[in-house]
Design a binder for these strands. Structure first.
Length: 352
DNA sequence: AAGCCGTGGAA
DNA sequence: TTTCCAAGGCT
């Protein structure tokens, strides 16, 4: 066993975090935790994990749930395909494996929403399978320790660090190895200002010895997102509010929202009103009761909010585009995007 | 393969 | 204010 692995495992004995999914060895709970924690910090995912496990304690309860209920428990966490995929996967598991999770990475990879990392994590942590789980933490720790400039977002880089991790793992306890690597990455070998003096791997870390920790990991592409402006329209009749469910191929798939008009940021200020007038196919513009201007900018998302009074004719026209009329007291059951959730809460519109 | 999917915290 | 990016996976 290498010095790397020996020191890592020894450190883990005294410094591992006390996390709920580590308190037992239920593969289902390990699966849930791994999916929740994809691209998500422990602090952010922890309350979601607790609520999710409480409501869906096993594969069967998840398989039997309605998708809306599953999405509701994911509301606000983001990357909602994770919830949809887990829901589908639970049904898949009930049909193929009698509700149990398979034990090999290869079989796990066939499950919806389980990729190379999650398959390795479940196989190693739940079943002791000897494979390294290479996540963002592992990429960071390994690339610094070996001062490796291979881009971690290239296919060559992924293969290199996977092989490297597997070699270091050797015949040691794979679950502990992987979780130890994650704990070091999350708490010590952090993206910025790593706490090297507390690191069990400081002695042989090449990046530290050269004081070039900030240079790793190397990524070839930089992420940038397009800017979008959403204009949410609150349209109500006596008892109900107009909602629609978002479709595939875009953000917030499967979630519910107020009818919206998207306008490119470059468009003129009231372009949405023209669009709505066209949409409702009348010469008269819909009456605006009130609106919020730039209620919140959510990263690159600009959210606007308008309460409208429509003529019966306009409402009819709007109904043509798969509008669902939701009673006021049913709104709270709908999974909605975070910006809309905050909007409804601020305006006190979710209760009646 | 490259682009996309959410949200919140930190600097 | 802007930028980065966190226990990735899908198309």
């Amino acid at each position: 066993m290498t010095a790397f692995t020996t020191k890592l495992l020894r450190w883990y004995q005294g410094h591992q975090r006390d996390l709920p999914w580590r308190r037992q060895n239920d593969p289902y709970k390990i699966w849930v935790s791994e999916v929740i924690l994809q691209q998500t910090r422990v602090e952010q995912g922890l309350p979601y994990y607790q609520r999710f496990i409480h409501r869906f304690p096993d594969v069967g309860s998840l398989a039997n749930a309605a998708e809306q209920d599953v999405l509701k428990h994911w509301q606000g966490l983001g990357y909602y395909s994770r919830a949809r995929n887990m829901h589908a996967a639970a049904r898949q598991l009930c049909n193929q494996y009698g509700g149990a999770l398979p034990k090999t990475p290869e079989a796990l990879r066939q499950i919806k929403g389980i990729g190379p990392y999650t398959a390795a994590a479940i196989a190693s942590i739940a079943f002791g399978h000897p494979i390294a789980a290479i996540d963002g933490n592992a990429y960071r720790v390994l690339s610094r320790y070996f001062a490796s400039s291979l881009p971690i977002d290239s296919s060559a880089g992924r293969k290199y660090f996977q092989d490297l991790g597997n070699q270091l793992l050797s015949d040691g306890p794979s679950g502990d190895f992987n979780q130890a690597l994650m704990d070091v990455g999350a708490g010590i070998c952090t993206p910025r200002q790593p706490q090297c003096t507390n690191c069990p791997l400081i002695d042989e870390c090449r990046a530290y010895s050269l004081s070039i920790q900030d240079a790793f990991p190397v990524k070839s592409k930089s992420l940038q997102r397009r800017e979008r402006s959403f204009h949410f329209l609150w349209v109500e009749d006596e008892n109900c509010v107009a909602f629609e469910q978002r479709q595939a191929g875009d953000i917030w798939q499967g979630l519910y929202q107020l009818p919206l008009i998207e306008q490119r940021p470059a468009d003129s200020k009231n372009a949405w009103l023209k669009t709505l007038t066209k949409l409702t196919d009348t010469k008269v513009a819909p009456q605006l009761v009130w609106h919020t201007r730039h209620l919140l900018t959510h990263q690159n998302l600009h959210i606007y909010f308008y309460k409208l009074r429509l003529t019966r004719q306009q409402t009819q026209a709007l109904s043509n585009k798969s509008i669902q009329w939701v009673p006021f007291n049913n709104i709270a059951a709908l999974p909605v995007p975070r910006p809309l959730e905050q909007l409804l809460q601020q305006k006190g519109l979710a209760r009646h």
